[in-house]
Protein backbone atom coordinates (compact mmCIF):
# COMPACT_ATOMS: atom_id res chain seq x y z
CA UNK A 1 0.00 0.00 0.00
CA UNK A 2 1.41 3.32 -0.99
CA UNK A 3 0.16 6.74 -0.07
CA UNK A 4 -1.78 8.38 -2.85
CA UNK A 5 -0.87 11.99 -3.35
CA UNK A 6 -4.16 13.88 -3.27
CA UNK A 7 -5.12 16.55 -5.70
CA UNK A 8 -1.64 17.13 -7.14
CA UNK A 9 -3.01 16.86 -10.63
CA UNK A 10 -5.86 19.15 -9.80
CA UNK A 11 -3.49 21.79 -8.44
CA UNK A 12 -1.24 21.46 -11.47
CA UNK A 13 -4.31 21.97 -13.60
CA UNK A 14 -5.12 25.16 -11.76
CA UNK A 15 -1.67 26.55 -12.48
CA UNK A 16 -1.76 25.52 -16.12
CA UNK A 17 -5.00 27.42 -16.49
CA UNK A 18 -3.50 30.39 -14.70
CA UNK A 19 -0.56 30.39 -17.10
CA UNK A 20 -3.03 30.50 -19.97
CA UNK A 21 -4.56 33.61 -18.46
CA UNK A 22 -1.31 35.48 -19.01
CA UNK A 23 -1.05 34.50 -22.68
CA UNK A 24 -2.12 36.69 -25.54
CA UNK A 25 -5.78 36.21 -26.26
CA UNK A 26 -6.49 34.72 -29.62
CA UNK A 27 -10.01 35.92 -30.10
CA UNK A 28 -9.93 39.55 -30.99
CA UNK A 29 -12.26 39.73 -33.86
CA UNK A 30 -14.84 41.36 -35.88
CA UNK A 31 -15.20 45.06 -35.20
CA UNK A 32 -11.56 45.47 -34.17
CA UNK A 33 -10.11 43.03 -36.64
CA UNK A 34 -11.65 42.69 -40.07
CA UNK A 35 -11.15 39.75 -42.30
CA UNK A 36 -9.84 40.13 -45.79
CA UNK A 37 -12.19 37.90 -47.68
CA UNK A 38 -11.19 35.51 -50.43
CA UNK A 39 -10.10 37.18 -53.65
CA UNK A 40 -12.81 35.36 -55.56
CA UNK A 41 -15.50 35.95 -52.99
CA UNK A 42 -19.14 35.92 -53.90
CA UNK A 43 -20.03 38.33 -51.16
CA UNK A 44 -23.18 40.25 -50.46
CA UNK A 45 -23.51 42.68 -53.34
CA UNK A 46 -23.16 43.16 -57.06
CA UNK A 47 -21.07 45.86 -58.68
CA UNK A 48 -22.09 47.29 -62.02
CA UNK A 49 -19.94 49.28 -64.39
CA UNK A 50 -22.11 51.81 -66.27
CA UNK A 51 -19.33 52.50 -68.78
CA UNK A 52 -19.16 48.93 -70.02
CA UNK A 53 -22.78 47.94 -69.80
CA UNK A 54 -24.64 48.02 -73.11
CA UNK A 55 -28.04 47.30 -71.66
CA UNK A 56 -28.31 43.95 -73.41
CA UNK A 57 -30.14 42.42 -70.42
CA UNK A 58 -28.42 39.06 -70.74
CA UNK A 59 -27.92 39.17 -67.00
CA UNK A 60 -31.64 39.54 -66.45
CA UNK A 61 -32.33 36.46 -68.51
CA UNK A 62 -29.68 34.49 -66.67
CA UNK A 63 -30.96 35.31 -63.20
CA UNK A 64 -32.82 32.34 -61.72
CA UNK A 65 -34.41 34.56 -59.11
CA UNK A 66 -35.67 37.13 -61.54
CA UNK A 67 -34.62 39.95 -59.30
CA UNK A 68 -32.51 42.01 -61.68
CA UNK A 69 -34.45 44.81 -63.31
CA UNK A 70 -33.10 46.60 -66.38
CA UNK A 71 -35.02 49.29 -68.23
CA UNK A 72 -33.53 50.86 -71.35
CA UNK A 73 -34.40 53.52 -73.87
CA UNK A 74 -33.01 54.16 -77.37
CA UNK A 75 -30.12 56.59 -77.46
CA UNK A 76 -28.88 58.94 -80.29
CA UNK A 77 -26.61 56.37 -81.96
CA UNK A 78 -29.34 53.77 -81.97
CA UNK A 79 -27.83 52.32 -78.79
CA UNK A 80 -29.40 51.41 -75.48
CA UNK A 81 -29.34 53.86 -72.62
CA UNK A 82 -29.77 52.10 -69.28
CA UNK A 83 -32.38 53.98 -67.31
CA UNK A 84 -32.89 51.60 -64.48
CA UNK A 85 -30.63 48.87 -63.19
CA UNK A 86 -31.79 47.32 -59.96
CA UNK A 87 -30.89 44.30 -57.92
CA UNK A 88 -32.98 43.23 -54.95
CA UNK A 89 -30.20 41.95 -52.72
CA UNK A 90 -32.73 40.56 -50.30
CA UNK A 91 -33.77 38.02 -52.90
CA UNK A 92 -30.48 37.52 -54.68
CA UNK A 93 -28.95 34.13 -53.93
CA UNK A 94 -25.50 35.25 -55.10
CA UNK A 95 -25.28 32.39 -57.53
CA UNK A 96 -23.15 34.45 -59.87
CA UNK A 97 -24.99 33.45 -63.05
CA UNK A 98 -25.52 37.08 -64.02
CA UNK A 99 -21.83 37.81 -63.61
CA UNK A 100 -20.96 34.82 -65.75
CA UNK A 101 -23.57 35.67 -68.35
CA UNK A 102 -22.63 39.30 -68.97
CA UNK A 103 -20.95 39.40 -72.41
CA UNK A 104 -19.31 42.76 -71.76
CA UNK A 105 -17.90 42.00 -68.33
CA UNK A 106 -19.82 44.91 -66.86
CA UNK A 107 -21.13 43.07 -63.82
CA UNK A 108 -18.97 41.98 -60.88
CA UNK A 109 -19.36 40.65 -57.42
CA UNK A 110 -18.49 43.11 -54.67
CA UNK A 111 -16.16 42.35 -51.79
CA UNK A 112 -17.96 44.03 -48.89
CA UNK A 113 -19.78 41.88 -46.43
CA UNK A 114 -21.37 44.44 -44.13
CA UNK A 115 -24.61 44.86 -45.99
CA UNK A 116 -27.18 44.52 -43.22
CA UNK A 117 -30.05 46.98 -43.39
CA UNK A 118 -32.91 47.83 -41.11
CA UNK A 119 -35.69 47.23 -43.67
CA UNK A 120 -36.10 45.11 -46.78
CA UNK A 121 -36.62 48.17 -48.94
CA UNK A 122 -33.10 49.38 -48.27
CA UNK A 123 -31.74 46.16 -49.68
CA UNK A 124 -32.77 47.05 -53.23
CA UNK A 125 -29.65 48.45 -54.86
CA UNK A 126 -30.27 50.89 -57.69
CA UNK A 127 -28.02 52.15 -60.47
CA UNK A 128 -26.06 54.63 -58.39
CA UNK A 129 -25.60 52.29 -55.52
CA UNK A 130 -24.41 49.44 -57.69
CA UNK A 131 -21.80 51.59 -59.39
CA UNK A 132 -20.69 53.60 -56.36
CA UNK A 133 -17.06 54.49 -55.83
CA UNK A 134 -16.84 52.59 -52.56
CA UNK A 135 -17.35 49.30 -54.29
CA UNK A 136 -14.51 46.84 -54.55
CA UNK A 137 -14.71 44.31 -57.31
CA UNK A 138 -14.20 40.66 -56.61
CA UNK A 139 -12.19 38.48 -58.96
CA UNK A 140 -15.01 36.00 -59.26
CA UNK A 141 -15.18 35.08 -62.97
CA UNK A 142 -12.89 38.05 -63.65
CA UNK A 143 -9.44 36.41 -63.40
CA UNK A 144 -7.61 39.51 -64.61
CA UNK A 145 -8.50 41.25 -61.33
CA UNK A 146 -7.07 38.43 -59.25
CA UNK A 147 -3.44 39.49 -58.87
CA UNK A 148 -4.20 43.01 -57.68
CA UNK A 149 -6.36 41.94 -54.77
CA UNK A 150 -5.00 41.46 -51.23
CA UNK A 151 -4.42 37.99 -49.93
CA UNK A 152 -7.09 36.39 -47.81
CA UNK A 153 -6.63 36.30 -44.02
CA UNK A 154 -7.86 33.44 -41.91
CA UNK A 155 -10.26 33.76 -39.02
CA UNK A 156 -7.42 33.35 -36.56
CA UNK A 157 -5.15 36.24 -37.21
CA UNK A 158 -1.78 35.56 -38.71
CA UNK A 159 0.27 37.10 -35.93
CA UNK A 160 -0.98 34.40 -33.55
CA UNK A 161 0.01 31.62 -35.90
CA UNK A 162 2.82 30.18 -33.80
CA UNK A 163 0.43 29.43 -30.93
CA UNK A 164 -1.55 27.09 -33.13
Amino acid sequence: MSLKPVGIGLMQGLFVVFKHATRKRITEQYPEERLTVSRRTRAQELVWDPGLCTGCATCVKACPQGNLKVTTSVGPNNNYIVEKFENDEGRCIFCGLCVEACPYEALFFGRRYERSQYSRGELIADKDEMSGDDKERSAYFRPDLYDDLPEQTLLIYRKHKKII
Binding site: V17, F18, H20, A21, T22, R23, R25, I26, T27, E28
Partner: peptide, 8 residues
Protein backbone atom coordinates in the same frame (compact mmCIF):
# COMPACT_ATOMS: atom_id res chain seq x y z
CA UNK B 1 -12.90 33.23 -16.93
CA UNK B 2 -12.31 34.60 -20.41
CA UNK B 3 -8.53 35.14 -20.22
CA UNK B 4 -8.16 31.58 -18.98
CA UNK B 5 -9.94 30.47 -22.12
CA UNK B 6 -7.87 32.85 -24.26
CA UNK B 7 -10.75 35.11 -25.15
CA UNK B 8 -11.88 38.58 -24.20
Amino acid sequence: ISPMQLRI
